[in-house]
Amino acid sequence: MDKHYQLPETQDGTVLFNTDPIIQKYHYEIDYLHSYAQDSPFFVGLSQGKLLGSHCTSCGRRFATPRGICMECGGKTEWFELPREGRVHTFTTCHFGGEAFLKETPFTLILVEFDGVDTLFLSRLVGAEPEEVYIGMPVWARFIRNSKFKPTDVYFVPR
Rank of each mutant, 00 (worst) to 15 (best):
106 P>T: 14
110 I>Y: 00
106 P>R: 08
69 I>H: 11
61 R>G: 03
74 G>F: 09
34 H>L: 12
73 C>V: 05
68 G>V: 09
120 L>P: 00
28 Y>M: 12
118 D>V: 02
53 G>F: 00
36 Y>G: 10
48 Q>N: 14
93 T>H: 11
107 F>R: 10
82 L>N: 05
58 S>K: 14
105 T>Y: 03
45 G>F: 01
103 K>G: 11
55 H>Q: 13
109 L>Y: 00
60 G>K: 11
112 V>T: 05
71 M>P: 00
106 P>L: 09
107 F>W: 09
59 C>W: 06
73 C>A: 15
97 G>F: 13
48 Q>M: 13
91 F>D: 01
51 L>H: 00
33 L>E: 12
100 A>F: 06
55 H>V: 10
89 H>D: 09
85 E>Q: 12
107 F>G: 05
28 Y>V: 13
47 S>C: 04
109 L>G: 01
119 T>K: 08
78 E>K: 07
36 Y>N: 06
61 R>L: 10
121 F>R: 03
84 R>I: 04
40 S>A: 15
26 Y>A: 13
29 E>A: 15
55 H>K: 06
99 E>M: 14
96 F>T: 13
27 H>Y: 07
56 C>P: 00
103 K>C: 09
94 C>R: 02
79 W>V: 05
95 H>T: 12
70 C>N: 08
43 F>V: 09
52 L>I: 06
119 T>A: 09
61 R>V: 12
52 L>W: 02
74 G>K: 08
72 E>R: 06
35 S>H: 03
60 G>R: 10
83 P>S: 15
89 H>M: 11
89 H>R: 09
57 T>C: 12
118 D>H: 03
30 I>D: 04
40 S>P: 03
65 T>E: 05
26 Y>E: 13
77 T>L: 10
46 L>Q: 01
28 Y>Q: 13
86 G>Y: 04
113 E>F: 07
34 H>N: 12
31 D>R: 15
62 R>Q: 05
113 E>I: 14
78 E>V: 10
111 L>E: 02
98 G>M: 11
67 R>G: 04
103 K>F: 07
72 E>N: 13
44 V>C: 08
45 G>H: 04
91 F>A: 03
117 V>D: 02
85 E>H: 13
112 V>I: 06
36 Y>Q: 08
103 K>L: 14
104 E>N: 14
55 H>E: 14
36 Y>E: 13
38 Q>P: 00
83 P>L: 02
114 F>E: 01
101 F>W: 08
107 F>Y: 12
48 Q>V: 05
46 L>S: 01
